[in-house]
Design a protein around this nucleic acid. Structure first.
Lengths: 347, 347
DNA sequence: CTTTGGCACTCCTGGCATCGGAGTGCTAGT
DNA sequence: ACTAGCACTCCGATGCCAGGAGTGCCAAAG
């Protein structure tokens, strides 16, 4: 809150500038406003108002004799106070539901397909974090022999397969021992919270059965991996959509985006706080915390599994994006995805 | 074979034009050749030779008063007959081996990391098909109950986990029944070729245990999915590298590439025949079979698991790419990857 | 018959000046 | 407080010119 906020007329003008600029990608002139939106005042008055909005930091001028475009602060006030939230049409909503209903039953593929769907719908770059399994329930562990000294440990959580981990041993182990160990572990842990599956207990069971400590390591690794590290994998889709926007006709900007998407780390940092707040979040321009991303914005909506948010759907695009629509799309998709996940478990 | 092939001097000139153009991205002039490579002939002679090479279809001129650049046919003869194969330096080779040694033990992640590595090394776009499991050996199947009417079927092959498939039933099933079914299936199928795990036999076992036919469906689906459909998933990385090349400073070209990468289908078509031949393959420009891809080339090398090729490493870049080096890089990486896969199983 | 120096010709490229238009800021008048 | 009008600024498109790079061809030389 800097000024005692904008008076109603300034607010309307700001909102209209954002709306028009989002639509046209051209700096907005005072005349354009008076002609296309009947404000009942002259362009000269609009010019005065715009000059004040610029002084207040809400608008900027690319050069002296051009129209105005919104600044980060301008978009921010628009998003927080001025825009009307959109709701999806019934058609959109059913389309999302149907595409997700027909999607794969396998978790990774489901996330992938959701990401692509969101990319297509939004015409921007979509990215989705895979579910974090921390709050999930342990269902099953299975140790399987592949060769005398090689095997794989699989952990299944309430979301389906959670992790697998290949292991090698320094001495042979009987497939039977692996089965016995699996049964013992399952008897002990089934339906506990994943986070409560402790390494000490695993070690105790392994010792009890007189098995090598290497197996404890293998099981622990699989459990750990199911708990899904602080930065879960992120699926991304739709980068090519960005090229339709005039702001990317210069290819340099796209390069840093592609690099960041491939690294994943930065993407995760951007959306991490939306996860904890469990609310939709919008980050605009410099709020993304990097000069490279200064002319982009990101909309993020969490999705749930059971009572908790387990991941986020995000849309990344030029700052000049239709915020209300993208929020509606992401929310609608998140809802359908959450629903889909719940169905898969409970049936 | 059109002409009785090129005489030695023409061949050398063609090779030098390709080499120089790959290095500079500028049309190559007759003088440049005589100055930078001592041919012992004058630029006028070179001009005459170049004119004949152009008549023969090996070179083209972007406009009348410019140097020459290679045509598809020019690159093709270069690749097939003129270039000297490169070998990787020891440093490169150990770097690849080390990065892959430290890579994940999980198959999907391993492929992912290999793809990124290849993207970084090649400075182009790399893509890698995930292993096709057809020739793999069935190791284990496990049916696991998640809820009274929901569960997951997991199939493990000699490459690690091959597939998983969630299922829902119309009536409750005891976890015990699932265990019994798993054991029966394993007793029957363990260590058979995956392709020999037939649906009829599965049905017989399910019937024998008096279980619902829905379970047969679940198992069959998982096996089918492990057999990995005709078009396996493809990992891609390094699209941002392409933006360094002058031919992509116009963003339109990149757009179609990104779209194609996302679709995967076209990528698979490009590399499919390299898989069957089990040999490195180079496709140049129009050979890729699409006008959109006409100024690109793709280098493909298969990797093996056991005696068979199970997937391909590819590098996609501008037609003006260092073919010998990229072939060496892809081959070296394929070799390390094959080695890594073999180690994982045999230990 | 092949090679080569020389020369005229073509075409691209970059710089420069010009011009029109779009928009603003300001002032003066309502 | 609003607005009509006007001078001013700046961008972007256009056209033009000069410079240069490179070729093709010819005629002479090996």
């Amino acid at each position: 809150m800097k000024s005692p906020d904008l008076d109603q007329r300034k607010a309307y003008i700001l909102a209209t500038v954002v709306y028009e600029y989002v639509a046209t990608a051209e700096p907005v002139a005072s005349q354009t406003l008076t002609q296309k939106y009947n404000l009942g005042i002259s362009s000269a008055t609009v010019r005065n108002e715009m000059a004040e909005l610029e002084a207040g930091g809400y608008l900027v001028q690319p050069h002296t004799s051009a129209g105005r475009i919104p600044s980060d602060a301008g978009y921010r006030t628009y998003v927080d106070q001025l825009m009307e939230p959109e709701t999806l049409t019934v058609a959109d909503r059913t389309r999302i539901r149907e595409e997700l209903r027909d999607a794969s039953r396998e978790l990774d593929d489901l996330i992938d397909q959701t990401t692509r769907l969101l990319g297509r719908l939004s015409n921007n770059l979509a990215f989705v974090t895979k579910p974090q399994a921390e709050t999930q329930v342990f269902k099953h562990v299975q140790l399987i022999s592949l060769a005398p000294r090689t095997g794989v440990a699989i952990v299944v959580t309430s979301l389906g397969v959670g992790a697998q981990s290949l292991f090698e041993l320094t001495s042979d182990v009987a497939p039977d021992d692996l089965t016995r160990l699996s049964s013992a572990l399952n008897a002990r842990f089934a339906n506990r919270k994943l986070r409560d599956v402790g390494e000490a207990e695993i070690a105790a069971i392994v010792a009890e059965l007189n098995l090598t400590d290497e197996l404890r390591g293998a099981v622990a690794a699989a459990v750990q991996s199911a708990r899904s590290n602080e930065t879960p994998a992120i699926a991304a889709a739709g980068a090519q959509n960005l090229l339709d926007q005039p702001e990317f006709h210069d290819a340099r900007k796209l390069q840093s985006i592609l690099r960041i998407v491939e690294e994943q780390r930065t993407l995760y940092d951007i959306v991490a706080d939306a996860m904890t707040s469990e609310n939709p979040s919008v980050k605009i321009g410099h709020e993304l915390g990097s000069e490279e991303l200064a002319d982009l914005s990101v909309v993020t909506v969490p999705y749930r599994f059971g009572p908790h948010a387990v991941g986020m759907l995000s849309i990344l695009g030029p700052r000049r994006m239709p915020y209300a629509r993208l929020l509606a799309l992401a929310s609608g998709t998140a809802e359908s995805l959450s629903q889909r996940l719940a169905d898969a478990e409970l049936s």
